[in-house]
């Protein structure tokens, strides 16, 4: 079966693979980092349950920041898919 190799197609192919790599690898760090935040929040609430509200808030703010690189990856993946 002939597969045409032309410039525009190669560029598109690279963009698609790039989108997969960007989102795939980019998702590893935030997943682990947010898990660490959640783990420590559980530990701290276990030690000091009265502060559960404060700790949950801190956990969520910390996770939101940790999430940012995941969102950057998502944005780059979407750019590669729909813009370039």
């Amino acid at each position: 079966m002939p597969v045409s190799i032309e410039g525009a197609d190669i560029v598109k192919a690279a963009a698609f693979i790039g989108a997969g790599i960007s989102m795939g690898l980019g998702a590893i760090g935030p997943g682990v980092g947010e898990g660490m935040a959640a783990a420590k929040a559980c530990e701290a609430i276990g030690k000091n349950p009265e502060q559960a509200g404060l700790l949950t808030r801190t956990m969520l703010v910390g996770q939101a920041v940790s999430e940012s690189t995941g969102i950057y990856s998502l944005v780059v993946a979407l750019l590669l898919l729909f813009v370039v």
Binding site: G26, A27, I28, P30, G31, E34, G35, A37, A38, A39, A41, C42, T56, M59, L60, Q63, A64, E67, G70, S73
Partner: peptide, 9 residues
């Protein structure tokens, strides 16, 4: 809650 956020990626 923590897991839900971690799941998002």
């Amino acid at each position: 809650v923590g897991q839900a956020v971690s799941q998002s990626t």
